[in-house]
Amino acid sequence: MLRLPKFEVKNPATVEEAVAMMMEIHGEARFLAGGTDLNPNMKHGLFTPERIVALGGIEEMFGVGFDESGNARIGAMVTLAQVEQHPDLRRAFPALCQAAKLVSSPQLRNMGTLGGNVMLDTRCQWYNQTYFWRNALGYCLKKDGSKCHVIEGGSKCVAAASNDTAPALMTLNAELEFATTSGRVRMPLADLWQADGIWNKKIPHTDLLVALHVPKPAAGSRGAYGKLRDRGSIDFPLFGIAVRLDFAADGSISDAALCAVALQARPWPLKKAAELLIGTHPGQASFNDAVEKVAMLAAKQCRPMPNIPGDHEYRHLMVPVYTRRTLHAAAAGEGPVHHI
């Protein structure tokens, strides 16, 4: 039996109320969306807020819409199950819907939100444990202690960004709409991250993610998501990679984006690798050759650490395999990619 710490629960009806409720107490307050990350973490004593601001009553944060130019607005409280099943999102942003489909289990996708997935805490096998377990270990730098067990003598936490949808949203150039005490702020998702496993975001936890804006994809754009995992359900990624490929009229690749996750504190865009694909033709040798080069470069740039479970050398060997398979799946309009 794992108990939650004592807290009060607030149920605001508007975004402005929610932001004010976060600021008006001296102690710590936390937003609660689906609670599938925060509740286990609180049960492990990783967060002990005095107040929970539950977001389920804020209408503005629900729903999926497209403007007249085809840009999508996805409310932060839209669940992963809704993202996965939304016909227009599936058509426009296949990598995003594939990533949502591979998150955890059906119940957790019914509860977990897209906003919560972006705002997910980083993960580490020395951190996502009960208080009892962490106490026996002597804690770690990220919470209650002073040592890192992943990098001996390390002064920086390298817990891994483990949110499956983040790399897909990165390849799609998504933007985030936050409500802050000084008003609304819009920022590219790519600018959100910082390389610090303790808090891997450049904004404070009191800023409220209201919605995600995903620009209209180029005509004929394709994408896919690949996820290495231990079991076919429930498990966080051991490695994840999202791909977007845009095509010119002659069928050659006009633009490409790749982003990996479950490596270190932030999702990891592979810009140089993606450039190697531009101008190549799927179905022709040029594409196959480029895919091999991209897979090798990804293996050089993605260095899994013993931060999350799963042998990190095995995870490293799987980087080119998953990069290659996910690229071929994207080119063929298929995916998601997973061996189990």
């Binding site: 939650l4 629960v9 149920n11 609660l32 689906g34 609670g35 599938t36 509740n39 286990p40 929970i52 539950a54 389920g56 059906p106 119940q107 957790l108 019914n110 509860m111």
Partner: peptide
């Protein structure tokens, strides 16, 4: 009607 985990749902929500 939607399968949900009661251990991760706050009663107050």
């Amino acid at each position: 009607g939607v399968p949900t985990l009661a251990c991760l749902s706050l009663a107050a929500t």
